Measured scan of single mutants.
Amino acid sequence: MASDGVVVEIGKVTGSVGTTVEIPVYFRGVPSKGIANCDFVFRYDPNVLEIIGIDPGDIIVDPNPTKSFDTAIYPDRKIIVFLFAEDSGTGAYAITKDGVFAKIRATVKSSAPGYITFDEVGGFADNDLVEQKVSFIDGGVNVGNATPTKGATPTNTATPTK
């Protein structure tokens, strides 16, 4: 695992066909100046998982989280898009600690492993708008004895992609 920078880890949970599971997305290594904004994309298989919603985690402190935390689910493109932009203008609602960034709610549709993997990152910046190093650890849903650990090695991303 990367020793510096922010680590975004997609949790690994267990479920069975027809059940709804909650998959946490963790941030670790949050910089001392916090995270003022970030955007990134995960990939998944809508034939295996139906993403039914995404909720902000406990490290989102904006009293009205829909102003700073936004997501979009595109089953036709097989992606989930995340956007966080601190909304106070003063840094008061920045992410300042490690913990759960988001909770992905999904219904298991198939007995195949439900991988959720890193696809791309736009950027991560602290309260001074300084770009942060970030790496990703894939996860998803274990169905029966299947284990979604494909790509469990962190993917280092030093520069934003478009």
Rank of each mutant, 00 (worst) to 15 (best):
V130N: 06
V6P: 06
V6Y: 01
G140P: 13
L83I: 00
P24H: 03
T157M: 09
A112E: 08
K103Y: 15
I35G: 02
T155K: 13
F27T: 11
G15N: 09
I59S: 12
F27R: 00
G18T: 10
A92W: 15
P113E: 11
D87A: 15
L129D: 00
P46E: 04
A112G: 04
G99M: 05
Y74F: 02
V61H: 13
R77A: 06
K33L: 07
N156P: 13
G140Y: 09
T19G: 07
I79A: 01
D58L: 12
K12N: 04
V21M: 05
T71S: 05
S16N: 14
I59F: 14
I95L: 04
N37Y: 01
P24R: 05
Y74E: 00
A125C: 06
V6M: 04
F124W: 01
G53F: 06
T90S: 06
K67W: 15
F124N: 00
N142S: 12
L83H: 01
D55R: 08
A72L: 00
V25L: 10
F84A: 02
V81L: 01
V61Y: 09
D138N: 10
D55W: 14
G123D: 00
D87R: 15
Y93M: 15
V17G: 04
T96P: 10
I116R: 01
L83S: 01
D87K: 07
K109N: 11
G5E: 07
D55T: 10
A94V: 05
D70T: 12
V130A: 07
N142I: 14
P148A: 06
I54P: 05
T96H: 11
P75N: 05
D55P: 10
T14W: 01
G15Y: 09
A94N: 02
V8R: 00
P113D: 12
D62W: 14
D119W: 02
V6C: 02
Y26R: 11
F42M: 03
S110E: 08
R28K: 11
R105N: 13
Y26F: 06
Y26D: 03
T157G: 12
G123K: 00
G18N: 07
D76L: 02
T157N: 13
G144C: 15
N64R: 07
A146F: 05
G140H: 14
S88I: 03
G123T: 01
I95C: 13
A85I: 13
V134R: 03
P154M: 08
G144F: 09
V121G: 13
Y44Q: 06
Y74R: 00
A94F: 01
K33M: 04
I60Y: 15
F118C: 07
K97E: 10
G89D: 01
G139F: 10
T149M: 06
D128G: 07
K12L: 05
G91D: 15
G18R: 07
D39N: 00
Y115P: 08
V130Y: 11
S16I: 11
V81K: 01
Y74I: 00
P24A: 04
I60S: 10
F69Y: 11
L83D: 02
G140V: 12
V8F: 00
G114L: 07
L129R: 01
K97D: 14
N142H: 10
P154N: 11
V8D: 15
V48C: 05
Y93F: 08
G91I: 06
I10T: 07
V30E: 03
V41Y: 00
N64Y: 12
G18D: 08
D62G: 12
D4L: 05
I116S: 09
P154V: 12
T117V: 08
V8K: 01
P75L: 03
Y115R: 09
V17M: 15
D128A: 06
N37P: 00
A152I: 10
V141E: 13
S135H: 06
T19P: 11
T155I: 10
G89I: 15
D119R: 02
Y115M: 03
N37C: 15
A36I: 14
I73H: 09
K103I: 11
I52H: 07
A36E: 01
G57W: 13
E9M: 02
R28A: 12
P56R: 13
K12P: 06
G57K: 14
I79Y: 13
I95Y: 03
N37H: 01
D119V: 04
L129W: 15
A146H: 08
R43I: 15
R77Q: 06
I73V: 07
P148N: 03
P65M: 07
P24N: 10
D98R: 14
R77S: 04
R28Y: 15
K103V: 08
D126E: 01
I10V: 10
G140F: 10
E9S: 07
I79Q: 01
A36G: 13
S88Q: 09
V13K: 11
T66K: 05
T107S: 10
K109V: 11
D4V: 07
I60W: 09
Y93E: 13
G34A: 06
C38N: 14
P31K: 15
K67F: 10
T107E: 12
A36V: 06
I59R: 14
T71E: 01
K133W: 13
D76F: 02
K109E: 04
D39V: 00
T157D: 11
V25P: 03
N127R: 03
Y74L: 01
K78R: 12
V30H: 08
G15E: 13
I52M: 11
G53S: 06
T96N: 04
D58W: 11
K78C: 04
D126I: 00
D4G: 04
A125T: 02
E131K: 01
L49N: 15
V81W: 01
N127Q: 02
S16M: 15
V81R: 00
K78A: 06
G89T: 03
T161N: 13
G122H: 00
A125N: 01
G89Y: 03
N37A: 14
F27H: 10
N64W: 08
C38V: 02
P148I: 03
D76A: 04
V25H: 07
T107F: 06
D62K: 14
N37I: 01
V61Q: 12
R77L: 02
A102Q: 03
A152W: 04
Y44S: 06
F101N: 11
K78Y: 14
T107G: 12
K133F: 08
I137A: 14
L129Q: 02
F84T: 02
T96V: 12
R77C: 01
T66N: 06
P24L: 03
G18A: 10
V141Y: 11
S68Y: 14
P46A: 09
V143Y: 11
Y74H: 02
K78D: 15
D126T: 03
F82G: 01
E9F: 02
G15D: 14
V134E: 02
T157A: 09
N156C: 14
V108S: 12
I54L: 04
E50F: 09
L83F: 02
G123Y: 00
K33S: 03
A158I: 10
D98F: 10
D4W: 05
I35H: 02
A125Y: 00
T90Y: 15
V108H: 11
C38F: 01
P75Y: 13
I54N: 05
K67N: 13
E131M: 02
G11L: 06
N142R: 14
A125D: 01
N47C: 09
D55H: 07
G91Y: 10
S32N: 06
G11W: 15
S88A: 06
I35W: 01
A112H: 11
V61K: 14
V143E: 10
S110F: 07
T155F: 09
G91W: 01
V121I: 15
D76K: 01
V108A: 11
N47M: 15
F101I: 10
G18Y: 04
G15F: 05
Y44K: 01
G34K: 05
P24V: 03
F40I: 02
L83R: 00
V48Q: 10
G144D: 08
K97T: 09
I59E: 04
G123M: 00
I116W: 02
P31V: 15
V25M: 01
T159G: 09
I52C: 07
S135D: 07
G99A: 09
V30A: 10
A146S: 09
P148H: 03
Y115E: 06
A125S: 02
C38D: 07
F118A: 07
K67S: 10
N47E: 10
I10G: 05
I35P: 01
D39E: 01
K150D: 07
S135L: 11
G139R: 08
T20F: 15
T20Q: 03
D70M: 15
S88K: 03
N37R: 01
P154H: 08
F27N: 15
Q132H: 02
A72R: 01
G15W: 14
V41N: 00
